[in-house]
Design a binder for these strands. Structure first.
Length: 635
RNA sequence: GCGCCCGUAGCUCAGCUGGAUAGAGCAACAGCCUUCUAAGCUGUGGGUCGGUGGUUCGAAUCCACCCGGGCGCACCA
């Protein structure tokens, strides 16, 4: 039930949602009837969140000193394999700068070598001289000159250098480097942007994990798009990824589901029935009831209650699972493994997990309950495992599940959870630490709420579920590509406004359209030229690309692998959508200002621009494909 | 009370391990179609980066405190 907070919990748990009051108000008003019965469920979906959430967000700055040490260790653990993935040019330059630093008696000095925001500051820039000057209390610009004098760079690598501003050293790369990038793009094709940085690390990405108690809603959709994209990013960076869905098919919510379906069956058969307290009121259960009666015959409604509910349970689970699977498949998300909570109980893993904790002396009995000593491992209070009524808290099967993932040989486990579950993280982390798993084993990516906006108005009711906008409603209306793109446009941890009108618009105001259009236009060039992109081959001579837009485009293409690495490291797919939009802007500008087919500069330029268009088309397609989006040839 | 999240242009948001005049889209305004999709391009206006201190050669970014908004402090999943 990783995500259910989204739907049921709107009125309470959302952190950091400005301007949400209206939404809460509407939702409450809108489902006044059902909401009454749902009160209990709402209450029981609340999550505690006292504890630290920081360490989850590795890629972000850490404001609290106390979390810092721990988080940084983890950042390093994650980044380490990625270092090799950086471009050869910047690595060579970095190495040379490090050599100079050590000649100046500053071995291992930390400095920055990065791509400056402003193209006027070169292709790469370093603050090395400024850092050195600080140690020596020297003038940074003079130090920069000394660094330059000492620097031994091949002209094949760097064409020009300058000292700028307070002491930056800027580098312009040799054109050979750009030609090499172009060659790499054509050679690697659909693989351009991939790296082996992950070194085959086995990663399990668990996402969506919705309760099988109703249709997937937009919040699940965002989780699906995000989890799938994170998984793809990890694949692109050389990790062995498993996409997994955890079915919460045990527990009281399934009992309520079964009772609710049974009530609908009786109702359809004209018998007295009512949805139990905490039950499910959605229209979909009426449809399920109809299906069940059609399948089993009218006598089904006359079964004794116990048996009826028992059989309704199986049917409800099956039908809800089918519907969720269908929606996910249509949304373009596939899972390698479906795990069932019930199966974890049935296989004895829950009992074994409990034994394991007990054997390690991590539990104690008090007040008729069994407790976990989670405070000894960073949680802020001890947690109940077995309630005094003898039943288990949710923590227990979840612990068993994570042990299971560990036992299946995963090096890393990433759970994509609704942000309302963030209070649960320290608990799980504490348990896994207690079991001796390395801290980097477990991580969580949080997904914030989605607010659907139409005509400037908030969310509306779904006609079919009687609840929220379902994922299906959404992608049927705006299309899968637009839905996925919009879900991925923002950082997962940021609340998202989904503007349905904008997503449907077939103009450049719509970012999905704008990006896909860039790809279609590039394809159009080849149609006009009556050439197949794959047949436009040969080395690229930079001298045949006279326009500044040509070079700008090529440089943009060159940044893609680095963007992928960073997006994977920080698990932030939105960086790919940001990149896509930037690249599309450059492509459109290039398309408008230069001419490929029948280039006025001559045949050599036409050929060079076709080569460039082919490369740009590859990169656009790769970035789109990575996010699960199509790259249309015409629109 | 304790804790967590958030506060960047009118709106929605980027801003990567602190860097060189703070960016994009939308909205507003002004232009550009005998030429590969005008489903596009170009330009203009618009910001005390919530506030105050601190660290630093340098802070939207790190630290402290404060203000404002949201949320949580269960034997519920």
């Amino acid at each position: 039930m990783r995500q259910d907070g989204y739907a049921q919990d709107l009125g309470r748990s959302r952190a950091g949602l400005q301007g949400q009051r209206l939404l809460h108000h509407r939702l409450r008003q809108g489902r006044q009837g059902p909401a009454e019965e749902r009160t209990r469920e709402v209450r029981c979906r609340q999550v505690r969140r006292r504890a630290e959430v920081r360490p989850v967000r590795q890629g972000r700055r850490l404001r609290q000193g106390r979390c810092r040490a721990r988080a940084q260790i983890r950042i390093q653990a994650w980044q380490a394999p990625l270092r090799e993935g950086r471009s050869r040019v910047s690595e060579a330059l970095r190495a040379e700068l490090a050599r100079v630093a050590s000649r100046f008696g500053a071995d291992g000095l930390e400095f920055v070598l990065e791509r400056p925001r402003d193209a006027g500051h070169g292709d790469l820039a370093t603050n090395l001289a400024m850092v050195l000057a600080r140690r020596e209390r020297a003038n940074p610009r003079k130090t920069a000159q000394r660094v330059l004098d000492e620097l031994n760079l091949s002209p094949a690598l760097v064409a020009r250098t300058e000292i700028a501003g307070p002491g930056f050293i800027n580098f312009w790369l040799a054109q050979d480097q750009l030609a090499a990038v172009h060659r790499a793009i054509l050679e690697q094709g659909a693989r351009y942007g991939r790296s082996t940085a992950g070194a085959g690390l086995k990663v399990n990405v668990e996402f969506v994990s919705a309760n099988p108690t109703g249709p997937l809603h937009v919040g699940h959709g965002r989780g699906a798009a995000l989890g799938d994209a994170i998984a793809a990013l990890l694949e692109w960076t050389g990790h062995a990824v498993t996409r997994e869905f955890y079915i919460n098919d045990a527990g009281v919510q399934i009992d309520r589901l079964a009772e609710s379906l049974w009530a609908r069956v009786r109702e359809l058969a004209g018998q007295p029935a009512s949805i139990p307290e905490g039950g499910y009121h959605g229209q979909y259960l009426r449809e399920n009831a109809r299906e069940l009666l059609d399948r089993e015959g009218p006598a089904f409604a006359n079964l004794p209650e116990t048996e009826g509910i028992q059989r309704a349970r199986g049917a409800a689970l099956e039908l809800q699972r089918q519907e969720q699977d269908r929606d996910l498949a249509e949304f373009g998300v596939r899972f390698d493994v479906m795990s069932s909570e019930q199966a974890i109980y049935d296989s004895g893993r829950v009992a074994r997990a409990l034994e394991l904790l007990r054997a390690r002396n991590l539990t104690f009995e008090a007040e008729g309950a069994l407790w976990l000593r989670s405070t000894e491992f960073g949680d802020d209070k001890d947690r109940v495992l077995r309630k005094s009524d003898g039943s288990f808290t949710y923590l227990v099967p979840d612990i068993a599940y994570h042990i299971d993932k560990h036992d299946r040989g995963f090096d890393r486990v990433i759970d994509v959870w609704g942000a309302d579950h963030h209070g649960y993280i320290p608990r799980m982390r504490a348990v896994l630490a207690a079991l001796g798993y390395p801290p980097e084993f477990f991580d969580v990516a949080l997904v914030q709420l989605v607010k659907v906006v139409r005509g400037g108005e908030e969310v509306k009711m779904s006609k079919r579920s009687g609840e929220f906008v379902t994922l299906r409603d959404l992608y049927e209306e705006v299309g899968v590509d637009a839905a996925r793109y919009f879900f991925l446009m923002r950082k997962g941890a940021t609340p998202l406004d989904f503007d349905v009108d904008l997503a449907k618009r077939q103009t450049d105001e719509n970012p999905v359209f704008y990006v896909q259009m860039a790809h279609a236009r590039l394809s159009g060039i080849f149609r006009t030229a009556e050439r197949v992109p794959q047949d436009v081959a040969g080395p690229l001579d930079l001298a045949d690309l006279p326009a500044p837009e040509d070079v700008e485009l090529l440089k943009k293409l060159a940044t893609f692998p680095e963007i992928v690495d960073k997006a994977a490291r920080d698990r932030e797919p939105h960086r790919i959508t940001v990149f896509l939009h930037e690249l599309a802007t450059v492509v459109h500008g290039w398309y408008h200002h230069t001419r490929a087919v029948g280039a006025p500069e001559g045949a050599a330029t036409e050929h060079a621009r076709l080569l460039l268009a082919r490369a740009a088309r590859i990169v656009l397609a790769n970035a789109l494909t990575l996010l699960g989006l199509s790259a249309p040839d015409r629109m």
